[in-house]
Amino acid sequence: MPFYVPLGARGLVLHVGGLITRGFGALVYWLGARRRPKPTLVPLVIPRDS
């Protein structure tokens, strides 16, 4: 068990549940991050005579 304090049989449920939640959550986060708009580069115009 990865826990600092003994959690008994519930600890096993929490551990397995945690692994599933983390895996699924990371997938949802990744999909969300892909959909998020990326910052775009704005062209900088410098006048020729500057």
Partner: peptide
């Protein structure tokens, strides 16, 4: 991260 935090 735990619970809903994993998706956010």
């Amino acid at each position: 991260l735990v619970f809903w935090e994993c998706t956010r």
